[in-house]
């Protein structure tokens, strides 16, 4: 029946809707990366308000904008594949949750004394983006869907570049 539909579509000159070609690694990458992005966006929003250095605010603002787009792309893809937005509980606990940025860590940025904000934010987001690089490189190595692997390659590259920029900002204190 399905084959018949495809044949009919071909005969009619239309392209049949392609069966999604993805694997469990693609799905897990998206399930983990979407909330990871949302945490990054929350941190960046706080920094847009609170950071003292203009370069830090500009970086935070660009990170918020680009990650919001990426999160939307990833959410649309996961939905299109008819996969759950969240993995079954416990499936990512290999590290006992040690790699997560906790909600309380993000909240602590709100209460940070102004004089300590920039350094704390840069260190927190650098650690967060190191974990993004790890996840993205795993997807590049083990994923199947070409566009998700492309996205993961760009995430790995841009987060590595962000880490370089943040380390540069940390090494050159603002006066």
């Amino acid at each position: 029946m399905k084959r018949l539909a495809i044949v009919l579509a071909l005969v009619a000159g239309c392209s049949a809707p392609a069966e999604p070609v993805f694997n469990a690694a693609d799905v897990m990458f998206l399930q983990m990366m979407i909330p990871h992005h949302e945490q990054g966006i929350r941190m960046a929003k706080i920094a847009e308000e609170r950071a003292a250095r203009p370069e830090v605010r500009a970086l935070a603002s660009a990170i918020r904008a680009t990650q919001s787009d990426e999160a939307e792309t990833m959410t649309t893809r996961l939905t299109g594949w008819e996969q759950p937005m969240q993995a079954p509980p416990g499936s990512h606990d290999a590290h006992g949750g040690l790699h997560e940025t906790r909600a309380s860590d993000i909240l602590s940025l709100e209460k940070m004394p102004a004089g300590e904000f920039d350094v704390s934010f840069l260190n927190l987001l650098t650690g967060h983006q190191h974990n993004a690089v790890d996840m993205a490189r795993t997807e590049v190595r083990t994923g199947l869907d070409a566009s998700t692997k492309d996205l993961a390659g760009r995430i790995a590259a841009s987060r590595a570049a962000q880490i370089q920029e943040m380390l540069r900002l940390l090494a050159a204190p603002w006066r």
């Binding site: 660009a62 680009t66 787009d69 760009r154 995430i155 841009s158 570049a161």
Partner: peptide, 18 residues
């Protein structure tokens, strides 16, 4: 669209937000 310092991975066609 938004002032920023460019980074690898933020090539114009890849980041419609920027």
């Amino acid at each position: 669209l938004q002032a920023h310092t460019s980074l690898a991975g933020w090539e114009p066609p890849n980041v419609p937000a920027l």
